[in-house]
Design a protein around this nucleic acid. Structure first.
Lengths: 155, 155
DNA sequence: CTGACTGCAAAGGGTTTGCAGTGCT
DNA sequence: AGCACTGCAAACCCTTTGCAGTCAG
């Protein structure tokens, strides 16, 4: 049930991370490579803690700080982006291709989706007044299948 | 240069907050009213600290915790929404009308914009597979006029 | 009047940093 | 071998909570 990206896409992203990181002068340590693999292999935009736990399974000695440092390093290089703030914890996104987000307002799950129709949005001209546009995407909010189907244990 | 919403819109939002809060059983204390006024009067999606400082100018005795409590109370009532995670600090959005966001990747500024063309996005059918949709909006990223125009003091 | 709210201060929890040892290049 | 990186632990900072006095309704 775990949402993994297809193997070759993971490999593709991984390669990109390795190459770009190396070119930026970062050393490809085993810890970093594991973090790379983890972030490249999922579309679920994990937070630091989640990445940490996953990496820790394969490499029990990694420290949480290293995961933090690695993810922010990738972020500084523009290789991953961060996304929205749940009440706590930044989440990382290794998907650099044009995509959109569906997020569950109940459980916080975020899932990518693609849609050619949404890739070229008719942005209003007066947006220029605010600044220059780099990119745009759609954020959809709703209830994921798991949350939507269950009875709500109301507060 | 401060970006305020037009007076009548502010008043409108304020009225809505007052009414809804009262109906929810919240007491309309002076502190809360000042927080209401502040959040209703801006489109800049301030974080707690920012709201606090603004309120503090008019009411020096207000405490930071009260601002936190008030904003989250409004959030729990669905009267304001929160948005995206800068590296630090949740930001609040008192604009309940349909709108979109422009955010500056450099300084973190977020500004609302309206666009009828973007209000009814052609969401792909297979989105249903992820869950039920409540709403959708466009997130535009770019450089705001202030950041885009200046020479970058690179790190 | 009474219960909810406020301010204070301390607790809490996630994130970052300094440092000495380690290992990639 | 040199220098960046790691792990550890302490430092930090933002946010939340407990409590007694205060105030809106």
């Amino acid at each position: 049930m775990k949402r993994k990206t297809e193997p070759d896409r993971t490999e593709q992203r991984l390669e990109r991370l390795r190459t770009a990181a190396r070119e930026a002068g970062l050393k490809l340590t085993p810890q970093r490579l594991e973090v790379f693999r983890e972030i490249a292999g999922t579309d679920e935009h994990p937070d630091v803690e989640t990445v940490f736990r996953a990496v820790q399974e394969r490499m029990p000695t990694v420290s949480l700080d290293t995961v933090y440092r690695t993810l922010w390093a990738l972020h500084d290089l523009g290789l991953v982006s961060t996304l929205g703030p749940q009440r706590n914890g930044v989440r990382f996104d290794a998907n650099l291709e044009r995509h959109h987000h569906f997020s569950c307002v109940r459980c916080g799950l975020v899932r990518d989706f693609e849609s050619p129709k949404l890739d070229d949005l008719p942005l209003p001209a007066d947006l220029k007044g605010l600044g220059s546009v780099l990119n745009a995407h759609v954020e959809v909010r709703g209830l994921c299948t798991r949350c939507g189907g269950e009875k709500k244990k109301s507060a």
